[in-house]
Amino acid sequence: MAVRTFTPGRAADRPAVLLVHGFGSDGHQDWVATGIAPALAEAGQEVIVPDLRGHGDSPAPSAAGEAGATALVADLLAVLDEAGAGTFDAIGYSLGARLAWELPTAAPGRLRRTVLGGLSPAEPFEAVDVAALHRAVADGTEPADPFTAMIAGMVRAHGDRAAGLALCVEGLRGTPFAPRSWTGDTPPVFVVGKDDMMTRGIEQVVDLVEGAELVTVPGEHHEVLAGAGFRRTVLEALTG
């Protein structure tokens, strides 16, 4: 996997922080261009910013099984192990938040603080007609289902990366998000945009975690990351 690492500007007694981007994005777009990764490094943490499989500069999956939630979380843990991060903080946005939810179970005792931004309380890809999506990517056949057609349009906009992203959709559809309980030692901070329709009903997930905090900031789903409210919440949650 492609990984960017930011060295802290000054020493601080805090673990490295893993930043996990959303679907169809990459580490640079979500975390570097928004200034969040540099800000965390300046505050004293080593910052680890991978591109998920099929995204950014990382290789595309060769099969859907390589792009399900379990496989993607295993990729993230491999990145942390390679970086020597025994304990770590994590920030995820959208798909990244869905994957970060699994980290305390996949790496017991290693996760310290967590911020889950733009998390959908349900698995959006469960409604995708996967066969129609693959056809749309392969030969341009427009899916009859409007939601699948929307996803197909988003995926095809990535050109040569479209086939890999379609496999990611299939893999994630096969490992849907179904939160039951939070297994980490410290409850996460949830952050949602005031106008983000994708996070409607997030209170149902927050209520599963005793002591969890829900913070609402301005913006819709694709505006939150670049906003001052999100950056301020992240810095307070991790460095406070």
Rank of each mutant, 00 (worst) to 15 (best):
V3Q: 04
T7D: 15
T7N: 11
G9K: 00
G9Y: 01
R10G: 10
A16P: 15
V17Q: 09
V17Y: 03
H21L: 07
H21F: 13
G24W: 03
V32G: 03
P38F: 01
L40C: 08
E42Q: 05
Q45M: 15
V47P: 01
V47R: 00
I48W: 08
V49A: 03
D51K: 09
D51Y: 02
L52Q: 07
R53E: 08
G54A: 01
D57C: 13
S58K: 02
S62G: 15
A64K: 03
A71F: 12
V73E: 09
A74Y: 13
D75I: 04
L76A: 08
L76I: 11
V79Y: 02
V79A: 00
D81P: 10
E82S: 13
T87V: 05
D89M: 00
A90C: 08
I91Q: 05
I91H: 07
Y93Q: 06
S94L: 01
S94Y: 07
A97R: 05
R98S: 10
L99I: 12
L103V: 08
R110D: 10
L111Q: 03
L111S: 01
L111F: 09
T114F: 06
L116Y: 13
G117N: 10
G118K: 01
S120I: 02
A122N: 12
E123R: 04
P124E: 05
A131W: 11
A131V: 13
R135H: 15
A138T: 13
A144Y: 01
A144S: 11
D145Y: 00
P146C: 07
F147S: 09
A149S: 12
A152T: 11
M154L: 11
V155C: 08
H158V: 00
G164I: 00
L167W: 11
G171T: 04
R173H: 14
R173Q: 15
R173M: 09
R173W: 13
G174N: 10
P176A: 01
R180I: 05
R180Y: 08
T183Q: 15
T183N: 14
T186A: 14
T186D: 15
P188Q: 06
G193V: 02
K194F: 14
D195M: 10
D195G: 09
R200L: 15
I202M: 09
E203Y: 12
A212V: 06
P218N: 05
H221C: 07
E223R: 10
L225Y: 04
A228K: 14
G229C: 01
R231A: 14
T233V: 11
